[in-house]
Design a binder for these strands. Structure first.
Length: 498
RNA sequence: GGCCCCAUCGUCUAGAGGCCUAGGACACCACCCUCUCAAGGUGGAGACACGGGUUCGAACCCCGUUGGGGCUGCCA
């Protein structure tokens, strides 16, 4: 295959949608697989809804996911002259006509029609182009076939296609027109996009062919004209991503922002790997595979036809696997991305890309202490954002006591006070390392006729505030004898009612 | 309503006529490991929507039914 040129064409109307991410990934994989070019094009013809800052978000998200565009971002807003030229050509060749019908008027006229859609009222009225919406004359007979790499050939009969609008009455081009002019100019070879765009493919083909047939040799000012026949791109319509109700993922209802997953501590390589699985699968029984394997084995022909549910649970599990694959050093660096070498302190950020401050006063943080707990934390989290909650008791002046935990392990345990007492006595004299603390606690438990599991529970809650957390004895070791004893005595004080 | 797409465990999928007693993964259940929680290990339950064909033989091919979804904007 000659080097393909593919593109993603998001419109900057909000955050980066996971569906756009999946489409971008398949485009990117295809480009990498065949030594092609991956292009980013911003479709910002709808000036009322587009905002420039969203463009940065799109680029950031792509870079974060490891799919930096080879070309672009191009912007449709900078290419108005090209669309006007195309409109001129189409108008001059008679493919377009001006229309002044409002949507409501059309609806009122056609409500009882067997085949709804625009009824062609303005078709032969000869309205002037200025100030009117422009419609494309679809042929009355025949059909247009879309040769789709994932779905095969899809046929649309022209009689079922209405005369669609290609330009607004203010002269601005619409999606179908701008999109196709860009794909021609940018020499796009494969249009890989969501299935919801399949119905617009025959319209695109009609425009494409009209442009091919019109305005022979009209190339002016060094620009390519429309007379040269250009190869139609190959189409590939990907299955949609849906929610649990099997509806198209919606920005309103569903958690679809890549930025959100990023802030919650999902790893880009994990998200990318998971996204690849939505509509396709790598060879063999392995789902968690290096990106290189994805690139080497990806094929549009193997893409599924049916919609895929975006399952956060499965994403989380895979993310946990990726986290556990990290070296401890990498894990620490990912959780806490930047540390001032002079002060050994972070910059207030914890979870990688989140602006959220840590749950403890930053000056109480100790990188060395965190490093000791890190391996224990690493195998217990599915996302990076869960990490601070597992170590907060170490850096907080006082543990945040979960009352349900207190009630369960201490409140309802008549022997808790005695056990804490005994633990204090034992901890005062023991060597302060995890192994010795383990042995000492075991002994305290035996004295009280308890197994370790029951003996450690009140101690854990007294010291960390919760019944769950990293292994207790390592936690105690890191906290230090004085602080542990202080917390145990404080708990005792609370039990005895102060 | 019209046009179009889709249909294997709850979910993501493997399966390209005999390899299928339908495989893997997430979730779920049980057990093991274990200082809690995880992680890990072992095992379990769990699907070819339905009806007709074609064929010696169908999850795989064809037709229909049913069900779901998308589009039907002077949004993209």
């Amino acid at each position: 295959m000659a080097a393909p040129r593919v593109r993603i064409a998001p419109s900057p109307t909000g955050f980066f949608h996971v569906g756009t991410g999946r489409t971008a990934l398949y485009n990117w994989l295809f480009a990498r697989r065949h030594g092609g070019v991956f292009i980013l094009r911003i479709e910002d013809t709808d000036t009322e809804r587009n905002r420039e800052e969203w463009v940065d978000g799109i680029v950031d998200a792509l870079v974060w996911l490891g799919m930096e565009p080879d070309e672009g971002p191009y912007r449709q807003s900078e290419r108005r002259a090209r669309y006007q030229a195309a409109l001129d050509t189409l108008w001059d060749a008679g493919h377009l006509y001006a229309c002044e019908c409002t949507r409501d008027a059309v609806r009122a006229r056609t409500a009882s029609n067997a085949t709804p859609g625009y009824d062609g009222l303005c078709r032969e009225r000869g309205l002037p182009r200025e100030g009117h919406a422009l419609r494309f004359r679809t042929p009355a007979d025949g059909e247009t076939q879309v040769h789709d790499l994932v779905r095969g050939t899809v046929t649309f009969r022209h009689e079922t296609m209405e005369d669609f609008v290609v330009a607004r009455s203010n002269g601005e081009p619409l999606f179908v027109l701008a999109n196709i002019v860009d794909d021609r100019d940018m020499k796009i070879t494969h249009v890989i996009r969501g299935e919801e765009l399949l119905p617009s493919a025959p319209k695109a083909i009609l425009i494409w062919q009209a442009l091919d047939a019109s305005g022979e040799g009209e190339a002016g000012e060094g620009e390519a004209g429309w007379g040269e026949a250009t190869d139609l791109p190959a189409w590939a319509h990907l299955p949609m991503l849906v929610n649990e109700k099997r509806e198209k993922l919606s920005k309103r209802r569903d958690a679809v922002a890549v930025e959100m997953y990023r802030e919650e501590g999902f790893l880009p390589e994990a998200l990318r790997n998971y996204l690849a699985l939505l509509g396709w699968s790598p060879p063999g029984d392995q789902e968690k595979v290096p990106v290189q394997v994805l690139v080497e084995s990806f094929a549009l022909e193997d893409v599924n036809h049916s919609p895929a549910f975006f399952d956060v649970k499965k994403l989380s599990h895979m993310n946990g696997e990726y986290i556990r694959d990290l070296s401890v050093e990498d894990f620490v660096a990912r959780v806490r991305p930047w540390v001032d070498p002079a002060t050994e302190r972070g910059a207030g950020r914890w979870v990688p890309e989140s602006a959220a401050p840590p749950p403890w006063p930053e000056e109480r943080f100790d990188a060395e202490v965190f490093g000791r707990l890190a391996p224990l934390v690493q195998e217990r989290v599915a996302t990076l954002a869960e990490a601070p909650g597992l170590v907060d008791f170490v850096f907080l002046p006082e543990p945040v006591t979960d009352e349900a935990s207190w009630d369960k392990a201490i409140g309802k345990d008549p022997g808790a006070a005695g056990l804490l007492d005994a633990a204090i006595a034992a901890y005062e004299g023991t060597e302060w390392v995890a192994g010795a603390l383990h042995a000492a606690t075991l002994a305290v438990g035996e004295q009280a006729g308890r197994k370790l599991a029951r003996a450690q529970a009140p101690i854990r809650v007294a010291v960390t505030g919760r019944t769950v957390g990293p292994p207790l004895f390592e936690s105690l070791e890191v906290l230090g004898r004085d602080e542990v004893l202080r917390r145990l005595r404080a708990a005792l004080g609370r039990i005895r009612g102060d």
